[in-house]
Design a protein around this nucleic acid. Sequence first.
DNA 1: CACCTTGATTGGATCGATCTAGGGCGATCG
DNA 2: CGATCGCCCTAGATCGATCCAATCAAGGTG
Lengths: 347, 347
Amino acid sequence: MARSEHRSGGTLPVTPPTLADVAERAGVSRQTVSNAVNNPDLLRPDTLERVRQTIAELGYSPNRAARNLRTRTSSLIGLRFAPAQEGTANAAMDRFVHSLVEASEEVGYHVLLFPGDDEDPIGGYDNLLRSTAVDAFVVTDTYLGNPQAAWLSQQRAPFVAFGRPWDDDGARHVWVDVDGAAGIALATQHLIDRGHTRIAWIGWRKDSPIGEDRRSGWVRTMHANGLSTTGLASRVEDVVHSGAEAAAVLLDESAPTAFVCASDTLAMGVLHTLWIRQLAPGKDIAVVGFDDSQVAQVYPVGLTSVRQPLEDVAVEIVRTLRALLSHQPVETRGVLLEPTLAIRDSS
Amino acid sequence: MARSEHRSGGTLPVTPPTLADVAERAGVSRQTVSNAVNNPDLLRPDTLERVRQTIAELGYSPNRAARNLRTRTSSLIGLRFAPAQEGTANAAMDRFVHSLVEASEEVGYHVLLFPGDDEDPIGGYDNLLRSTAVDAFVVTDTYLGNPQAAWLSQQRAPFVAFGRPWDDDGARHVWVDVDGAAGIALATQHLIDRGHTRIAWIGWRKDSPIGEDRRSGWVRTMHANGLSTTGLASRVEDVVHSGAEAAAVLLDESAPTAFVCASDTLAMGVLHTLWIRQLAPGKDIAVVGFDDSQVAQVYPVGLTSVRQPLEDVAVEIVRTLRALLSHQPVETRGVLLEPTLAIRDSS
DNA sequence: CACCTTGATTGGATCGATCTAGGGCGATCG
DNA sequence: CGATCGCCCTAGATCGATCCAATCAAGGTG
């Protein structure tokens, strides 16, 4: 069975070299080459060296499809990719995806993106699962009572969620999340340390568990420092002008000297109100946002913001996925990571 | 050869049904089932119906790995994913990736992300190519004289670039790009229509071909309207404070009434200077940015910005990729798309 | 009626890797 | 000294789909 000749180090041959090519050239069997790649310990050192050299000469790399077929794995992690919403400052996805790609690469996995369809939220998952196109999923939107986590659990599909199963106590899946309350507590304490006592909260509507969680960090820290929260909180939609309006009302009614916000979007609204009223952020009134978005970073004054450790989240998720996929017992059902505070001139 | 029974519509079976399972149950050969999936026209209508029903009953979906192995394709498009740089407003990647994922899905492709390594820019490409893990690539960073495009061309690897081969006239690859000059021309004309005559340009350093291209749109439009550009241009680094400094200098020396910037990042710098000088954006001085980033959208005043038609870019790229992969002759080597202007209160 | 064409379907071979069982060989042991 | 063990390696079978060549039935032609 003569194969086309392979040029070494030049352009890619029309058909890349196969395991059999390497085996023939190195004078060993196919299985030995396979072992050289996957179980080097099984080979005698000199054989290993010889095979490795041949692999290098031919520029051989195992054919993914063949390997996937035989091992019933794909080394792919599926991720439904939703873009940042227009008109908001929410930019977590971008950084998270990058972190996930990096962390996956470290352990030999790649990230496969697929689009989301709000009308058929599990369609994309189902297709990939049925065709065994991916080994596992990372689910990022567990908060809205989405059926994905439950559905995947039911299918026995391996997945890790970024986000706690807020509304489902019975959820049995594994998750990684960032402690938003701790982040807001950090921000609140930071403001208190700067001498503020009347610190207002502008958060999301009450039906958002994430929003309520973050809010609790503010309440907790205020009370722990003997400060009152009455009349200092507002719950609105996550859009700029809502933040602006809320800030205006709070300034009029309660005269706070600082604002802690559930998002950078809301913080931008606060900054807008300050600008209108000729109040200097950071000097007259302090403002803190959440997510350390690009907006927070490039806003002229610099917006202090709670920064999620997305790199660590990604690493933790990949670590957990590996454990799941190798059928090791996963010790903890959930992991909660601590955010940090990116301090800028607005506080 | 008895197989485990498959429950219909319940949890996924331990091993999903195969083509052979469907064939046996429908009382036809494997090839007929394959044809029902891939070449329905070959089947007699009643046979097709019967096979389709069986496929539905079993919840059969072709195994990707097997198909990939046999057809030597993967239906995957590789994309090197670099996150937005911290401290800039550049957010094109996020939206572009989403558009690409959507456009790919439409034609049965998925997007595979892999990390970039500045020290070994072709490493990721090489691995995926050798292991035939992807069918093609989308290359997004052609501008920096990166060796990727040339290397991929040499390897005969199918790819489409998002971005013109600025510095390589001999480049023979296919590309899709957005006409930045036209976008800036649009912005400039918009300002002229508003009555501005002294319109300043703040762009990137001269060694950026993209920056020079965008600048040419400003020059062209100014001259076409009989307006002078002398003393009204500045070239700086793409960071906020450089934009702020440039704006300050220009205001002092040339008293422009409007600024057109090569990026939203620079525009934010301009807005900062205006804020310091108590000048109202949109009233006293007009400002236009580039990229329609989240920053432009949530900045309190609302930053007018040139918006790249990334959805169209993605569609065009996928269309071109399909042509490449089906070995159809690609009629045009490059496609240039027109941006639009997102008009907000800053102008 | 023999011969050819067309349409619908089939069975074996194949893609390139890994799994499984087993073979060769030298070292160790009773 | 033969049996046994472990190490290193090999050959055939296999994963699940598609390619290819061949078969069969039905219809048209001379």
